[in-house]
Amino acid sequence: MFTTNLSEPVSNTGDYPLFAPTVVAAAPRAATIAPARRDETALADVLRHPGIWRRGSTKVPRSDTLSTGLADLDALLPGGGWPRGALIEILLAEDGLGECSLLLPALATLTQARKRVVLVAPPYIPYAPALAAAGVDLAQLVHIDSTASDTHWTAEQCLRAGCCGAVLNWLPRSDYRQLRRLQLAAETGGTFGFVFRPLSAAHEASPAALRLRLEPGEAQPRLEILKCRGRFGEPSHALGLRA
C-alpha cells in the first residue's frame, strides 16, 4: 500500500498548477571546463523537459491528451483535450445539464479503440440506446454496482489497474485525501478519471488536474474552467455548451 503524502500543499485552491516553475542553475564546474556555448545548449536541453514550465514562455508543456470533441473547449485546454492519467472533476448544480454528453465524444473514441470504460455506481441507469447512438461501443462498457462505502475503493482499483480507458465516478462526498488517492491511482494507471461532484465542492481544495464547473445559464448551460494544470492567464473561462 502507499501512503498519502500529507506534506502536499493543501492550500492550493486551484488557480495555480500543482508544480511550481523550476529554476535550474547551470552546474558551475561544467561552466569552467566547457565553453559557454555548450553550457547554454545543456541548459536548453534541461529546460526542454516536459515537466518544466517557464512562466515567461507561451508554449504549454506537451502532455498526452484526448480531444473532447468540442473545438471551443479543446482550444482552452493545454494539449487540446482531456489530460490522460489524471483526475478530471466536473462540478454541477443539477443533473441533466449535459454533463455526461460532454464526455460522450471521448467515450466513443475510447470504446471504438477497444478501451474499457467503467461506470462506478452511476446515480441513474445509463441508457443504452443513447450511448449507442453517440457511437459508444457497448461491449466495452462496464457498469459496476457498489455500495457507498465501497465506491472509493472500486474507483481506485479501476483507475490503478491500467486496463480501463476511462473510469466515471459519482462521488457526492469525498475529502481531499480520498481524491488525492484517486489522482495518484489515475497517474499510475494512465487512466482518464472523470469525477462528478456537487457544486458545493467548488470551494474545497482538490488535487484534480482539471476542474470544470457546469451551471445553468440563461439560454444554455455555462461551462467554466476552475482549475487547469499547465494553463495560466485568465483564471476562468466560460463557454456555452449547447449550440
Partner: peptide, 11 residues
C-alpha cells in the same frame, strides 16, 4: 462487491 456487481449494458 459480489458476483453480480459487474455488468454490461445492451440495447
Amino acid at each position: 462487491l459480489g458476483d453480480g456487481a459487474l455488468q454490461g449494458i445492451a440495447c
